[in-house]
């Protein structure tokens, strides 16, 4: 089993990674430190699970080296049975994050969405209806504040609910209530 952590640069992916594995990766505010990808191990129900911290990327249409690496790593994971993608989304920039998440879903991966940095979203007075979002997308959606270790275990416990979703269904559900 393998878990890929994906998301935009600077959404707190590396902190997330540290929370899961406690490995020695450097987490910084500037993009770039994670260009060399880092991977570590986590134990889940007594099994060893590989966790990969994929370089931050804005979309699956690579624009620079780090993004190329990210896309290549995602491709690689296709061959692995039981590959999950945790897509870390900045709650205060939901649309941009969903764009990436949607692309990954379209590729047929089992995705979990972690809405990260909730405190900032709150500062800006943004509220996101998790359940509604989960219902529309058909993938688990969990709120987290990685830097304070809030919601991380929720993400892991919801892993089992992640499954590939047909984007057509999302389109129907997404358009339906609008």
């Amino acid at each position: 089993m393998k878990i890929l952590l994906m998301g935009h640069p600077n959404v707190g992916k590396s902190v997330f990674f540290n929370r899961l594995t406690g490995a020695n990766v450097i987490e910084s505010n500037y993009s770039g430190t994670t260009v060399d990808y880092t991977c570590g191990c986590m134990s889940l129900d007594g099994k060893e699970v590989e966790v990969v911290d994929v370089p931050g990327t804005f979309s699956l249409d690579p624009k620079d080296k780090a993004e190329e690496v990210a896309v290549a790593m995602l491709e690689e994971a296709k061959d692995t049975k039981d590959a999950y993608v945790i897509c870390v989304v900045d709650s205060s920039k939901l649309e941009r994050g969903l764009y990436l998440a949607m692309q990954i879903i379209e590729e047929g991966y089992s995705v979990i969405i972690a809405l990260n940095m909730d405190d900032v979203a709150e500062d800006k007075n943004i509220e996101i209806d998790n359940q509604k979002l989960e219902q529309i997308l058909g993938v688990p959606v969990v709120s987290t504040i990685a830097i304070e270790n809030i919601g991380i275990s929720n993400v892991i416990s919801r892993l089992k609910d992640a499954k590939p979703v047909d984007v057509e269904d999302i389109a129907v559900r997404g358009a339906g209530a609008a």
């Binding site: 649309e95 969903l98 509220e127 209806d129 998790n130 509604k132 999302i170 389109a171 997404g174 609008a178």
Partner: peptide, 12 residues
Amino acid sequence: LIDSIADQVVTY
């Protein structure tokens, strides 16, 4: 699609 989803789940 994302715009329409965001409209439904996000309240500013």
